[in-house]
């Protein structure tokens, strides 16, 4: 791995991590660093091992080999809850919000603000609605009515709700699983802006995507994952967008195809 360039420990790091499911090797010798307050992109095509990597980082899977470090300390997660308690929040592509529920109910889901004593402990509905609105406004999204179901928001706004929620509840590390893959061009732009905002506000972001164009726009560091291995590692200063796209596609002859594949779906 590359030398540590600052004294500050990385928010998250993996060293020679591997994961086997029976005889299937899903990940092998994966090392990566997620420096604080930066956007670290993990690029990979379908089947590259992105999902397994996310699940290791978010505590769903425990790696079979190697070691994970949180804030420089060796750490093992046995459940997503443990990862959350360590300030690592994951926003899954489609599984982040409940469409039929009001925006404010989604925002506070799992962290509901309450008052009073059991059995009279109630939700602080008025506070929750107002602070949800304020929090979303900070992300640049005007929720006129926090009572409206999340299903009525656009895809980009829904991702923003998830990101705002994770940041609000004290996430130090934010893992984003393909946040732009289901979105249109404009909405992707909105989400990319939120990713940048989150990083600038002090959050370390892991941005997992198959789209090198999106990654290049917001990323500080880039990791290329293929067939369960870390193929390459770049920083923003050492790579151009064209190089990144080419590397991602695995060759010049795939360049054209990569643009097509990387285009909006």
């Amino acid at each position: 791995m590359t030398e540590v360039t600052t004294n500050e420990p990385d928010a998250l790091a993996l060293e020679d991590v591997g994961k086997r499911f029976g005889s299937v090797i899903a990940l092998q010798d994966v090392s990566m660093r997620v420096p604080k307050r930066q956007v670290t992109c993990v690029l990979g095509d379908n089947g590259a091992g992105k999902s397994t990597l996310i699940k290791i980082l978010s505590g769903v899977h425990t790696p079979t080999e190697g070691q994970m470090f949180v804030d420089g300390k060796p750490t093992t997660f046995n459940s997503p809850r443990e990862a959350l308690d360590n300030g690592i929040a994951t926003v899954y592509q489609d599984l982040a919000t409940v469409p039929l529920m009001a925006v404010w109910r989604n925002f506070y889901l799992g962290n509901e603000p309450t008052k009073g004593f059991w059995p009279f402990r109630g939700l602080r509905t008025k506070y929750a609605k107002e602070s949800c609105k304020a929090e979303m406004a900070q992300m640049g999204i005007d929720i006129r009515d926090p009572e409206q179901p999340v299903g009525t928001l656009s895809g980009g706004e829904r991702q923003a709700v998830s990101i705002a929620r994770a940041v609000h509840f004290g996430a130090n590390v934010l893992i984003l699983d393909e946040p732009t893959s289901a979105l249109g061009v404009k909405q992707s732009g909105v989400v990319l802006k939120h990713i940048r905002t989150a990083a600038e506000s002090g959050v370390s972001v892991v941005f997992i995507t198959h789209n090198p164009h999106h990654a290049y726009l917001v990323g500080d560091n880039f990791y290329l994952l293929n067939r369960g291995r870390m193929l390459a590692e770049y920083t923003k200063d050492t790579v151009s967008r064209e190089e990144l796209v080419k590397a991602m596609a695995g060759g010049a002859e795939l360049d054209a195809l990569a643009h097509e594949l990387g285009a909006e779906t």
Binding site: A96, T97, V98, M101, R105, N111, R165
Partner: peptide, 16 residues
């Protein structure tokens, strides 16, 4: 809130 969430999307609910 949890009742609505587990019925609306159990996976999303579990994830948070």
């Amino acid at each position: 809130n949890w009742i609505y969430a587990v019925g609306g999307d159990a996976n999303a609910a579990r994830n948070v």
